[in-house]
């Protein structure tokens, strides 16, 4: 049982996390700056129609599986981590809270607004107006940038919550 939870669970948590944060960084460091140039020469449709929707699907489900496998690994220690029960839980508690905030950002702000921007799901047959899309674009952009900012401390506290890294940074 331990092998499944701590071995397979940890493997899948990290794999999902790489997919999630990798795509987040792709959106922020590659796609958004690249779209400016693509819009200028009329090639943006290739990205917004064929690449962004596929990347967003993987992105949002990877965020869910990262959080679920993270909760699985913590198991009975989850409440202690989230409530900072004692100092041993401080690094993982901060990392977990940052991950949860980022996950809520994905499902509550980024995904609903990207659906409007890219005409996905219910907006495929009934597209949002340009005014609504412009507002959605700004909200999705800032939520995505907020997640990029939060990913830096989140990653630090995730890797700092165990092993030699933890001892180096927090002693004991």
């Amino acid at each position: 049982m331990d092998l499944i939870i701590y071995g397979l669970g940890r493997w899948l948590h990290i794999g999902s996390g790489i997919l999630w944060i990798g795509l987040l960084w792709y959106f922020n460091f590659v796609q958004v700056p690249g779209l400016k140039g693509a819009a200028a020469d009329g090639t943006a449709a290739g990205i917004t129609k064929h690449i962004a929707p596929r990347a967003l699907e993987l992105f949002r489900w990877a965020s869910l599986s990262t959080v679920l496998f993270g909760a699985l690994i913590l198991g009975k220690q989850l409440p202690s981590a989230l409530l900072f029960a004692n100092k041993a839980y401080y690094p993982i508690g901060i990392g977990a809270w940052l991950g949860i905030i980022m996950f809520l950002n994905v499902w509550g702000l980024i995904w609903p607004n990207q659906k409007k921007i890219l005409n996905l799901y219910q907006y495929a047959t009934n597209p949002a107006s340009d005014e609504v899309k412009n507002k959605a674009r700004r909200i999705a952009f800032l939520a995505s940038r907020t997640n990029t900012m939060l990913s830096i401390p989140m990653l630090f506290f995730m890797v700092a919550s165990g092993g030699l890294f933890r001892r180096a940074f927090f002693g004991g």
């Binding site: 100092k87 940038r145 990029t148 900012m149 830096i152 401390p153 506290f157």
Partner: peptide
């Protein structure tokens, strides 16, 4: 004042500052 999240470097610097603030906070707390 411009929103620092509008630029990539502003976002990264904010992330590093937040890391430092949180790290020092829990380092001195524990």
């Amino acid at each position: 004042m411009k929103n620092p999240l509008d630029s990539i470097w502003g976002t990264i610097i904010c992330g590093l500052l937040l890391t430092s603030v949180l790290y020092n906070f829990i380092y001195f707390l524990s």
